[in-house]
Design a protein around this nucleic acid. Sequence first.
DNA 1: TCAAGTTGTCCAGCTATCTAGACAACTTGA
DNA 2: TCAAGTTGTCTAGATAGCTGGACAACTTGA
Lengths: 251, 251
Amino acid sequence: MTTQSRSPSGYATWRLIAEELRREIVGGARAAGAKLPPEGELAERFGVHRNTVRQAVAALAAEHLVVSRRGSGTYVAEHTVLVHRIGARTRLSDSLGSRGNASRRLLASAVEPEPPAEVTERLALGGGAGLRLETVVSVDGLPISRGTHWFAADRVPGLAERFDATGSITAALRTVGIDDYIRAATTVSARHASAAEAADLSLTAGSVVLVTRSLDTLTDGTPLQLGITRFVAARVELDVGHPDLDLDGSA
Amino acid sequence: MTTQSRSPSGYATWRLIAEELRREIVGGARAAGAKLPPEGELAERFGVHRNTVRQAVAALAAEHLVVSRRGSGTYVAEHTVLVHRIGARTRLSDSLGSRGNASRRLLASAVEPEPPAEVTERLALGGGAGLRLETVVSVDGLPISRGTHWFAADRVPGLAERFDATGSITAALRTVGIDDYIRAATTVSARHASAAEAADLSLTAGSVVLVTRSLDTLTDGTPLQLGITRFVAARVELDVGHPDLDLDGSA
DNA sequence: TCAAGTTGTCCAGCTATCTAGACAACTTGA
DNA sequence: TCAAGTTGTCTAGATAGCTGGACAACTTGA
């Protein structure tokens, strides 16, 4: 009997151990390719049975953060954190640019006659309908973010179809005559993923998501897009950069 | 037997329910003062026994997010989210300004002869020692953030003592002759809190923290401070604002 | 070739968690 | 004043999930 209080509330011990190991890995204390201590040693360190450690390691292996090789050991896998730059000319496609196989997929789109109050207000819809796009961005097959994008329906006719074809919001907007837009405001928060979000992003329940709420405007200040994006916290980091150095935009 | 898979992995069902309710509350779907559905109704909705719902509600009550009144019901408590603005002139004290009882406390300070590589590099220490401050900021007695601040030890003599006295980094820096500094870079990520962080911030294990890594420089570009701040995600939101509008600073 | 080290698999027992039901205490509105 | 509605408390039982130990399968280096 280890006398350790086990899970005092709500979290299985193996999950707490998994999170601890994850912090060590993504925090940089364990480099890619490095070998983890043997399970027996970890078990001793955390004061639990080896099977409990195994369950934690299995969870990390399931998300491809580590790879176990029988007879040899468990190794930290190659894992890249996508750095997404947020600035006046923020385009997710720019952050994805250098990456392999980035794909943006349209989950659903709908014209909403009566959008939520926040949307109506910030997009200055004034009673008009809103267009809602639900998207998922993946890199190398791994989902990165889950976005909800609101537009004034009458300002962007056919946008959903265009987006579905091009896979890019910037490109789709160009086909409706909008060549430029500017990020006017962004707020960042974080929370546990909901069950639905976890499903869309191939996460286990309880994973952490970074949530941005952003407003894009045309160059004359007209509100264009209200976006709520949920990034997989384990795979994405936001770079706020330095405002003064950010006047030119990206690329 | 409800056949529902319970916690497929690592999370007690009552905790998943608590997180779900929390999202509804802080997401704005339930306003302060609003009454939650009766426990029996929630139990039916989630497909569990009322006792399980009670445990979830008790967890939310423990963090003062809801208040239960016997015979009457459970109500959403007053809860404010601190909005912290991040810009060229970022000072946490500015975001705290309008709040009641904000206090900044020094947990520990130490001169480290050999700081981590990242610190040595980004602060351009070149072999010199680093000064590390560990702080906690609270508002109305509730911890808001947990910061680790690195300085070049020889550039800020006596800073720790000064900070301890004034409770403000900006003020403490002034006493060593540094009147102005600029936020040069900030990255934002999120993850589960470690056990130590949870303890410092009065959180239950498994809570979410927003993590910022920031570099402040003097006006001539000399690196001044490297900060790693862990914000309680449930109580703080970051406002990145719009770079172009942010040239003047705050207040 | 072999010994040491490591992960994979299995099974049995224990325990925390969830389920279940009943009743008390209290509030609210008719 | 009273009935309906709601939260608080308690007890007991079922079971999913965690613990613990033993051994097999495999890798590595001497």
